[in-house]
Nucleic acid binder design. Structure first.
Lengths: 110, 110
DNA sequence: TCGATATTTCATGAAGTATGGAATCGAAGG
DNA sequence: CCTTCGATTCCATACTTCATGAAATATCGA
């Protein structure tokens, strides 16, 4: 991942509503969530939601699929993966033990 | 980690110069880097650097230690760890296989 | 084709953030 | 004590981002 991509992802996530949207989509997983359902769940106006979804989409953090009148949104885990890799690049250059706790926090066993 | 803390961390990182600073400190690990060395390495003015370091420090992403006239900065891995955990919370609620690739990207074996 | 529903686009004012120059602080050395 | 060096703070200007309402677009059912 390049610096500019990482920056756009971080900027997209550095916003209260967008962070909530993204985490909601992370939790929803493969199922995704229709735009309207995001709006009612998070109590946001549809136009504001649409703007924020477009920011997340421009940062490649989410993608969408039309289903008739509704549009279903999904978190883009592969992008998230690349971002985390970029942020922690070479963190273990000196000593693998140091960043071990970071990984532990991410473990999917909880 | 609470949402507000995550937001301040993300906002701090969503800035070209601060992202470079943070990644430099991540690579430096336990050794840390003195402020002056950061300035010369990244070719930034000392006042700008100082501002940006204070933003990163306010977000608890870095901490510092005075050593005579110089001040040495370190990346705060425990904060980074909490941030990643917050972002990916419940990512595996449905299916552990889905977020496995995210972890792989972070693996310290490279 | 018409109306209803779901979502997006656009322009705008208000608020927040970045930047660089100058002044300041704190520690070390003569 | 005075100077130098490393780093920070202050401040005004310029820039960017944000939420909002009004209008537009797309899809479906009648």
């Amino acid at each position: 991942m390049e610096s500019k991509e990482a920056l756009s992802s971080l900027a997209a996530l550095a916003h209260e509503q967008r962070l909530e949207i993204f985490r909601l989509l992370i939790k929803a997983g493969e199922t995704g969530v229709p735009a309207g359902e995001i709006a009612t769940t998070l109590h946001v106006r549809p136009n504001t939601l649409s703007n924020n979804l477009s920011v997340l989409a421009a940062a490649n953090l989410v993608h969408s699929k039309r289903e008739g009148r509704t549009i279903r949104y999904f978190a883009a885990l592969e992008r998230m993966s690349a971002l985390l890799g970029f942020l922690m690049e070479d963190c273990c250059g000196g000593n693998p033990e140091i960043c071990r706790p970071v990984l532990k926090q991410m473990s999917c066993t909880n």
